[in-house]
Write a protein that binds this DNA or RNA. Structure first.
Ligand code: FES
Ligand code: FES
Lengths: 141, 141
DNA sequence: CTTTTTCCTATCGGGATAATAGGATTATAT
DNA sequence: ATATAATCCTATTATCCCGATAGGAAAAAG
């Protein structure tokens, strides 16, 4: 239950790799090789991250990828949203009229509450928490 | 992302129905009819809930289903676990040796932290929070 | 104008989910 | 006993999403 897609896990590994690689030197094939990810599949992942404004890409010779912001500015909620979409336990979270129930539906509020709990966790942690040694990201801050 | 299966949503609706139906009078086909769920599919759901000790079933004539505990004793974490398994963002949450990383892997701790956040939400809410009017289950208690 | 790299589109296989089907079991009621 | 009414059990299907793959188009550098 609530398992994370390989796409998101790959994306985080790629981001962590970029955080260790300054400049434009990180090439897609290089990251795939180092992290053991299918190169072509990784392309789509990096494109999503670029579209979301988390990485910058440059094509042509001497092109490649780099982080668009320092690791501390890359919020994990954005990463997850870019790769697997917004946290949405049930479809009626943001668009009513799907279920035949009304807006006061108790189940709906229950799931929205879960969404808030997840968003709060993901929104308060950044890539820096994952790559840096030291503080434990599990503990509430 | 983090969407809930129809199975779990059906299960919650069935539980809510049982909470409104005293005694052994709740028959599978009846619940399915009232909640608009495929009868045969609902059977499997109720079996899971029974195996988990959340509902009791009696077969034969005059048989049916009823809650095994009062709604306030049915923790939503148990419901979710019974229908879709334990909260497990990544497989290495409880069994190491899957990823080629070691136990100090930062990503792993990050996901375990998310698991704790989700489990805390689901563990502190019961069926009573869903069926009862009044307090908003979204707010932290 | 050749090389290197990202970008775009299309396809494919596997696995899980939701649903369906048919019957076997169990208990009640007459 | 026997008919009835219900849960239980096993197997099958249809569909969708994901992870992966493929081939090439566009762009930037030298
Ligand atoms: S309105 Fe969507 S679950 Fe009730
Ligand atoms: S050990 Fe599983 S993600 Fe690192």
């Amino acid at each position: 239950m609530f398992s994370v897609s390989a796409r998101t896990q790959y994306g985080i590994r790629a981001l962590a790799y970029l955080a260790r690689t300054p400049g434009w030197e990180a090439i897609g094939a290089q990251i795939a090789e180092a992290e053991g990810i299918s190169p072509k599949y990784l392309e789509g992942i990096l494109t999503r991250l670029a579209t979301a404004g988390l990485v910058r890409s440059e094509r042509g010779k001497n092109g490649g990828y780099r982080l668009a912001k320092p690791p501390g500015g890359i919020v994990m909620a954005e990463v997850v949203a870019a790769l697997d979409g917004e946290v949405r336990p049930v479809d009626c979270v943001d668009s009513l009229g799907i279920c035949d129930h009304d807006s006061s539906c108790r189940s709906r509020r229950f799931w929205i509450g879960l969404k808030f709990a997840i968003d709060e966790y993901l929104g308060n942690r950044t890539l820096a928490d994952i790559i840096e040694e030291g503080a434990d990201p599990v503990s509430t801050r």
